[in-house]
């Protein structure tokens, strides 16, 4: 059966959705992720949806569910890389994903997770420490 790979990285788990999400795949991902959070005692979950061309209410609900389930398991979730057209459509649809943290891209998402969990930032690219450096995209 088709599955979306889940990567473990330190105390985080990472998922990058690269295929058109059909409903069963979304359900499987939800199960796999919660199992993986428990197995690896993850503190943070990062879901990259930059390849998704649409997010309808079903996929939106899945993202919300994952965030809620992760929270119960004591892990923070960040959804990153949503495309502008997808964001506009989701809001119009009435789904603003209020319980889900978001970031522009994977890098920012990792920074956000580290900041929330109080883990020291290794890259030294936190704004306060880099007065000259323009944040890169």
């Amino acid at each position: 059966m088709e599955r979306i790979p889940i990567l473990k990285m330190g105390e985080f788990v990472l998922v990058s959705i690269q295929v058109d999400m059909h409903d069963q795949l979304a359900m499987t991902l939800q199960d796999d992720l919660t199992a993986q959070i428990v197995r690896s005692r993850a503190k943070g979950v990062l879901i990259d949806i930059s390849a998704l061309e649409i997010v309808d209410s079903f996929i939106g609900r899945m993202l919300g569910n994952i965030a809620s389930m992760a929270r119960v398991l004591d892990a923070e979730t960040v959804v990153v890389g949503m495309r502008p057209a997808v964001a506009i459509t989701l809001v119009e649809l009435g789904m603003a994903l209020p319980g889900v943290k978001t970031a522009l891209n994977v890098e920012r998402g990792m920074e956000l997770l580290r900041a929330t969990l109080g883990t020291p930032v290794e890259t030294g690219r936190a704004p306060a420490e880099s007065p000259n450096g323009h944040p890169q995209n």
Binding site: P84, L90, V91, L104
Partner: peptide, 9 residues
């Protein structure tokens, strides 16, 4: 505001 937040801003 909601749409910007979905993009992380």
């Amino acid at each position: 505001v909601a749409a910007a937040r979905l993009m992380g801003a």
